[in-house]
Amino acid sequence: MRAGITAGKDDKARRRRLARRLIAVQEEQRLRLSRELHDDLGQMLASVALELHAIRADSAELDTRLARAAHLIDQLSARVHDAAWSLRPADLDRLGLRACIEDLASMLCAQLGVPCDVDLEALSRPLEPEVALTLYRIAQEALTNIGKHARPSHVSVTAHIWDNKLRLAVEDNGHGFDGNIAPGSHHLGLAGMKERLALIGGELTVETAKGKGTAIYADVLLSD
């Protein structure tokens, strides 16, 4: 009986190591694509924009068309930058998880014009790379969903540690939704968060109801 329990634990540990390696490979691919977008395509677009801005035509009509083309290039450059950031935020390695999630929350609440309570002191401690990446993606998805659907008057992003467990909580007092309905296409983000967290042995809990806001809790066991 004991041998069977040990074998089960070993199998679970192997699956977790494989899952973590999968996350690492995915993020390496994201990082490479992010750098290619930012460094190569971004630089090319910047060069084209400079050329267009520098051109002076002989006719007002051509000047207007060149100005419009330059504006479109500027917009495309901004979208490439956003895509590169979304694939792999460069500041995650440089500034750390706490600062990056604080930036996400600040940007969202500034856009919505609502107050935001942020307490992420618990994220100042070093975390395994795959754990930090997963928590960042969950915060990113949760805050994006708030911006798209919730229409809140208040947002809260907090992290706490107890009993060797880290909990990241993203809460709002917005529209909420019926949590008893089976997830449809508009809930695929939640399903993705659950799957991603499960890969590192974590658990996602969603508490919501129509008109009652939404609370998303991401729980992860910390390594000793």
Rank of each mutant, 00 (worst) to 15 (best):
Q26T: 08
A3W: 05
G202C: 05
T144D: 12
S124D: 15
G213V: 04
L120M: 08
H149Y: 15
A122K: 04
E27A: 10
E102M: 07
L33W: 09
E130H: 12
A191T: 15
A209W: 04
K212E: 13
R125V: 12
P183S: 04
H160T: 13
E61I: 09
K12P: 00
Q111S: 11
A150S: 15
G184P: 05
G147S: 07
A142W: 02
R98W: 07
L76R: 02
H186Y: 09
R35T: 02
D103N: 12
L72H: 12
H38K: 15
D93L: 10
R2F: 07
D74Q: 06
A198V: 01
E171Q: 10
V114L: 03
V80W: 00
D58V: 11
L123A: 03
D219G: 01
L133C: 10
S47C: 04
S124I: 00
I55G: 03
A209N: 10
A78K: 07
K148S: 06
I5Q: 08
E61H: 07
P183I: 06
V114S: 01
V155R: 01
L120T: 03
R79N: 09
T144W: 02
E36A: 15
A215N: 09
E36H: 14
T205Q: 13
A70M: 01
L133A: 14
R56E: 14
L133K: 08
V48K: 03
L31R: 15
D172W: 02
I55L: 14
T208A: 09
L18Y: 11
V118Q: 04
C100Q: 11
A46K: 04
H175E: 15
H160A: 15
L18E: 14
A182R: 10
R35K: 13
G189I: 05
E61W: 09
E203W: 03
L190Q: 11
S86W: 08
A57Q: 09
M1G: 12
R88P: 03
K12W: 14
L188E: 12
E27L: 10
V114F: 00
R125I: 11
D91V: 15
P115Q: 12
M193D: 03
D117V: 12
R30E: 09
A24D: 14
R20L: 11
R167P: 04
A19V: 02
